[in-house]
Design a protein around this nucleic acid. Structure first.
Lengths: 342, 342
DNA sequence: CTGAAAGCGCTTACAG
DNA sequence: CTGAAAGCGCTTACAG
């Protein structure tokens, strides 16, 4: 793309029009330094008159920072585990950055070539910090950013979690809470539809399920797997019922799978929750769309976003960027799918 | 945020290490100019050795362009009409920009303050062009960008469509096609669940419905409205059946509403499609998730994205940025919900 | 509080 | 093909 030169007023012109030096004009826009009321007014009115907007490249170059923070997100609809939570997460991040006057810039690379270009972009100084909601497996980026002093915070615990900062949700506690809720409702033959084994979050939820069942002295081997989507839940439910047709509750590792499971149950003549209670995970919009509405484990995703942003801001500009980590607790969102009518 | 100075090699250091001038080194990275093989190799190996990455601020400032394109998207989950299509749209845009070596940068402002900051950001030269998938109502931005020669392309026809470039889908034709499909299946008492009246797209779909019904000499007044979401469809369907319980087909202006309508029908004992055929709009993932799978109108959204990106690229750097517009045709995606088994 | 001046790290005619 | 040089538009000690 070629450059087009248009009428874009420069600081110099504004300063001249206001009858002050460039330095003074600059101070007016950076806000913080002492400038006389008179000078400030003159500069501001000149700026308005000329339609001045600071050239951000020049500003970044001179100041050594960009006042913006990059957020790498998974492709929407990619089936990434954050997908149903993404909007809430971004809301939390956005609020926090906004409060700090920082621009949130999103990236959603689709191909390896995109990832390559993105790395250059991020390392090249376009952002002051990076929040990672995807690409956990790319390991070159953390090191390259670190070498340039650009802090990076992961959402969710990355595979090699020692050396990096992250904010995560306690999936193990969530799995346990969901299961304990079912037990408390008097359920005994409880099945779990787990997410794919390669996902640490899915494994943690399964572990939470097992722990709760063991503690209650119940069988914890009614377990099947699905791909986190609706079909996966439906199929897994079918298999589970074929194995044990007296299951009285199901905990699914995602709301979509829970919805699929609920469908399968209803097709096979089971009433939810009277015959079989169902609980999901994520408390996504799906949960209130099913009939009956679905109980679920609500992750404090807005908080997670806020904490990620805070961490990034506090880390940037600091010499010692030793990694910091934080784990937040989920809570139950109880709806009709687990509460039997009497 | 403060700056942290780290070991970030500069062009100067690379040039020195390679034994050439800064100009020559620069030419190696810009790729296009003539540089001797020898110099090229020396520069490249020095760059690798030093871990050189160009400072993007300096590059933008000197070159007068940023090699990146901003895309303003609606908040995910905001109920924006593009929401279900967003991932496909971004895929199209991303592919095209990627092919041109441009970085796609996403923005999703949440508050008026965010919009304000974003305008500064975009006008300030961070991007060479802007693709607008949201914020159609903000009218200050187009003018400000135009004044700086930054091209802007809307996705979907904006309210005041004369002065701007856009790529849109022919919603009127889509509405007509959906309705004609139902008529062709032998349906006669066809209802339409329209989207909110303030949406131009919704109005166009409704108009398409009416036109098809008139042309076939059928009653076109079985119309109700919903908010594009599942509940809206369910409620509207209930009202429609209360008015006319012999409706034999429904065309809903969104897949979510169609899913809600289907649910309402099934609850009331109607078989889909045997008693009532149902068709949606968008061909979103919902369409294949319903039982039976939902026929829908597929918008060529990837193409739309690609064309938007092409338009932006071709417009940038051009003196005469007179607006260009393009309208793409949707096509039918026929599934079981409209094809009665015999 | 204010200005002159240096400098941020690149690109790009211009001349050779 | 290559280099010296000017310049992109800002910020920020430094001195006053």
């Amino acid at each position: 793309m070629e450059a087009v030169s248009r009428t874009a007023a420069t600081l110099d012109q504004v300063a001249r029009a206001a009858g002050v030096s460039r330095a003074t004009a600059s101070r007016v826009f950076s806000g913080n330094l002492r400038v006389s009321e008179e000078a400030r007014r003159a500069v501001e009115s000149a700026a308005t008159r000329l339609g001045y907007v600071a050239n951000s490249a020049a500003r970044s170059l001179a100041a050594g920072r960009s006042e913006s923070v990059g957020v790498v997100v998974p492709e929407p609809g990619s089936g990434h585990f954050l997908d149903p939570l993404l909007s809430r997460l971004l809301r939390g991040i956005g609020e926090e950055l906004s409060a700090s006057g920082l621009q949130m810039v999103l990236f959603s690379p689709q191909s390896p070539a995109d990832v390559q270009r993105l790395e250059q972009y991020l390392v090249g100084g376009h952002v002051d910090a990076v929040l990672m909601l995807a690409l956990h497996e790319s390991d070159t980026l953390p090191a390259r950013l670190h070498a340039r002093g650009i802090p990076m915070v992961f959402g969710g615990r990355p595979p090699q979690s020692q050396e990096v900062s992250f904010v995560d949700v306690d999936n193990h506690a969530g799995g346990r809470a969901a299961t304990e809720h079912l037990i408390k409702q008097g359920r005994r033959r409880i099945a779990h539809i787990a997410g794919p084994d390669h996902s640490a979050a899915a494994r943690a939820r399964l572990a939470g399920f097992r722990e709760a069942m063991w503690s209650a002295g119940l069988r914890s081997d009614f377990v099947d797997y699905g791909d986190l989507d609706r079909d996966g839940g439906e199929l897994a439910m079918g298999r589970l019922l074929a194995t044990a047709d007296d299951i009285d509750a199901v905990f699914a590792a995602s709301d979509a799978m829970a919805a699929g499971a609920m469908w399968a149950l209803q097709v096979l003549g089971r009433r939810v929750p009277d015959d079989v209670a169902v609980i999901g995970f994520d408390d996504s919009p799906i949960a209130s769309a099913t009939r009956p509405p679905l109980s679920s484990v609500r992750q404090p995703v807005e908080d997670m976003g806020r904490e990620m942003a805070k961490l990034a801001v506090s880390l940037s500009g600091v010499r010692d960027q030793s990694p910091r980590q934080m784990v937040l607790s989920p809570e139950l969102s109880v709806r009709e799918s687990t509460v039997a009518s009497r």
